[in-house]
Write a protein that binds this DNA or RNA. Structure first.
Lengths: 236, 236
DNA sequence: CAGGACATTAAACATCTGTACAGCTCCCCG
DNA sequence: CGGGGAGCTGTACAGATGTTTAATGTCCTG
């Protein structure tokens, strides 16, 4: 998220809700984690229950036994990922002046690939993840307000609008992490310390701005009139 | 794409390669278009061949007869979508000073939902679409260079880096169009004239910038040192 | 009109997929 | 000790799915 705001390294709070060695987990937890990994990599529709079971080292029947159905398993994954991300967010917020929630949810070395799961699910659609996105936007509104008071951010006309745009740009970058990596060599789901190739140009845009002065005013005026007929072609 | 650059409405050039009434199409073309729609909506793995066949008003066997396999059909869709978008890009570039390629590929009233297909495929991964993304970045580099000469854009330190970031932000927004719509009511895959709720805050950010002066320089300096150990937490 | 190439279909097939079931093992509680 | 319940497995099954095949129709060509 308007990530570039965060200038301090993330303390990698160990594992709040998900941690622990992979071997000593409950079978139920192993299944859940395996499902998250598979769903993240291949999508829900592209993942057979048997593959998840094999990854978790259990039988297919046990997956159903514990979760009732594949779809219920998916919901459980949604909820677990959302809850874990909320935990990390909160931990990061409590532990210091970390303004970048996305940085806090980066996948640790162990544990399931939360960010990649989130990226997939953002496209596949899920009520729980949609709710999480709404919260992230809400957080961004708060962070931006604080940042403006502090002087770290410039004041804006449309606080919620800007927070929404920045949040979705940030999440969108994660969703397209494959292309980010191909084009810049940076893995946005990995080590934050190695994201300079992406963070530096992003912050260049976000600090100086790139549009000439006046373009914004013209665009705003054009859309304010609100007669849609020959309104200006938008952004994307 | 740094869409906001485009200040002129898109002339909606009719159909370059895809047009025509839905009824008078070859069965092969109908199958392809039905597949694009289905793939865009439900993903490749989530779409049975029989569903595509039903949409196209043909038998499942004919789908295979024409394309060989479901996977080959997917490749054909990739190529067709990429080719059509290239056509529209070129037409838009030729027809006037349109700086926003994404605006040119918005889904027309008729024809398959190209943008939604692109959004899905950007996540599912496809060599052809990846190539297309590379081209879009390359285009953005050119457009930005022109814009800077013209004075429409401010000069930047890292031209290619900024072009990449802007292109992926823009594509990412389209990929997350569902969330954009839920949060702002704007459909980025639809009518460009009705995207004000998104375009205005986006252009506010892109014109004025939101980060306080100095943050960019500090971030750049921190990453320039390149000793990764305690580098600043990145953006997202 | 003969004949062949192509479009198209319905049915058949083998496989995969989600799920239900019956039974096994093992541990805890009385 | 013994009984019951939970974790877990292998098997069974019904339906879906990708693909094949043989047959039918259709159109163009010679």
């Amino acid at each position: 998220m308007f990530n570039v705001l965060n200038m301090s390294s993330v303390p990698d709070t160990g594992a709040s809700g998900t941690g622990g060695d992979p071997g000593d987990l409950t079978a139920r937890a192993r299944i859940r984690d395996a499902a998250i990994s598979r769903f993240a990599a291949d999508g829900v529709a592209g993942t057979p229950v048997r593959a998840i079971a094999a990854d978790a080292g259990v039988s297919a029947g046990l997956v159903i036994h514990h979760f009732g159905s594949k779809d219920a398993l998916r919901v459980a994954c949604d909820q677990h990922v959302a809850a874990t991300i909320r935990d990390r967010k909160q931990a990061a917020a409590a532990s210091g002046a970390n303004l970048d929630p996305v940085a806090a949810m980066r996948d640790g070395a162990e544990g399931p690939p939360l960010l990649r799961y989130l990226a997939r699910t953002l496209v596949d659609g899920s009520p729980h993840v949609a709710e999480l996105v709404d919260e992230l936007v809400e957080d961004a509104v708060g962070y931006m307000a604080t940042g403006i008071e502090t002087g770290m951010l410039k004041p804006v006309d449309d606080l919620r609008g800007c927070a929404t745009v920045l949040t979705l740009w940030s999440l969108g970058s994660v969703v397209l992490h494959e292309h980010v990596q191909r084009l810049t060599g940076v893995d946005l789901t990995g080590d934050p310390a190695a994201t300079g190739g992406w963070a530096v140009p992003a912050s260049e845009i976000l600090s100086k701005g790139i549009l000439a002065e006046g373009l914004y005013d013209r665009l705003r005026a054009a859309f304010a009139v609100e007669d849609a007929t020959s309104a200006p072609g938008g952004q994307t």
